[in-house]
Simulated assay, not measured.
Amino acid sequence: METTVKAENILKSNGLRKTQIRLEMLQIFMGSKHALSVNDIEKDLKSSHDRVTIYRALNSFEENGILHQTPDPNGNMRYAICSDSCPEHVHQDKHAHFICEECNQTYCLEDVKIPDVQLENGYQLNSISYTMNGVCKECQLN
């Protein structure tokens, strides 16, 4: 029940309509320890929604700074909920991502910051991808 209230507050604070798909998806992201693919989201949804609706929700979440994208080992996109320190409408996705070579999950490492990069004049930086590969904590225990 607590995640429902938190999801409703996230939608309200971002000026987004409260719909079943948005509430369900936010609750899925809040309960996940790793970034999710569209297939992961589809599997976890309690009700049936087409992919267009899922992608529209993902886009609105990303545009409002609720989620960010990160690549998976196959070059596809996964989505992760932004931390509370990510300001609305401006992604501050300045942390590393870790891809486990055993379970293929992508994790956000919020405490691992990307170093500041100084470019020569005339270059405009739009994004930085800082991804590390290895074996996650859970796979090491197995």
Results as ranks from 00 to 15, higher is better:
residue 4 T to C: 10
residue 104 N to F: 09
residue 62 E to I: 13
residue 1 M to C: 06
residue 28 I to S: 07
residue 34 H to E: 08
residue 75 G to E: 00
residue 46 K to S: 14
residue 58 L to R: 04
residue 12 K to F: 13
residue 67 L to C: 07
residue 138 E to L: 10
residue 99 I to S: 05
residue 23 L to Y: 00
residue 52 V to A: 14
residue 64 N to T: 10
residue 25 M to E: 05
residue 87 P to V: 02
residue 120 E to G: 14
residue 74 N to Y: 11
residue 21 I to M: 01
residue 51 R to V: 05
residue 133 N to K: 15
residue 72 D to S: 04
residue 54 I to A: 05
residue 91 H to C: 13
residue 39 N to R: 14
residue 3 T to E: 15
residue 13 S to A: 13
residue 100 C to I: 00
residue 42 E to H: 09
residue 87 P to M: 03
residue 39 N to T: 08
residue 119 L to K: 08
residue 32 S to V: 03
residue 110 E to L: 03
residue 48 S to G: 10
residue 79 Y to M: 03
residue 42 E to I: 15
residue 142 N to M: 12
residue 139 C to D: 00
residue 86 C to T: 10
residue 108 C to W: 00
residue 111 D to A: 10
residue 44 D to M: 15
residue 106 T to M: 02
residue 142 N to I: 11
residue 82 C to E: 05
residue 19 T to C: 01
residue 39 N to Q: 13
residue 103 C to H: 02
residue 118 Q to A: 15
residue 67 L to V: 07
residue 9 N to I: 06
residue 120 E to H: 10
residue 110 E to D: 08
residue 78 R to L: 06
residue 79 Y to E: 01
residue 2 E to V: 10
residue 9 N to R: 14
residue 40 D to P: 02
residue 58 L to E: 04
residue 75 G to S: 04
residue 103 C to W: 00
residue 114 I to S: 07
residue 102 E to Y: 04
residue 121 N to H: 11
residue 127 S to I: 05
residue 32 S to E: 06
residue 112 V to E: 07
residue 25 M to I: 05
residue 57 A to G: 00
residue 9 N to P: 03
residue 22 R to A: 13
residue 123 Y to D: 10
residue 57 A to S: 13
residue 20 Q to T: 13
residue 110 E to N: 03
residue 140 Q to K: 15
residue 94 K to F: 11
residue 65 G to L: 05
residue 140 Q to A: 11
residue 47 S to K: 15
residue 127 S to K: 13
residue 106 T to N: 04
residue 76 N to E: 09
residue 111 D to C: 06
residue 33 K to G: 12
residue 109 L to W: 08
residue 20 Q to S: 15
residue 142 N to H: 11
residue 14 N to T: 08
residue 19 T to R: 07
residue 66 I to F: 00
residue 96 A to F: 07
residue 139 C to P: 03
residue 52 V to T: 10
residue 80 A to S: 11
residue 132 M to Q: 14
residue 69 Q to P: 03
residue 7 A to T: 06
residue 15 G to F: 04
residue 12 K to H: 11
residue 98 F to N: 00
residue 120 E to W: 06
residue 2 E to A: 13
residue 96 A to N: 08
residue 68 H to I: 05
residue 70 T to Y: 01
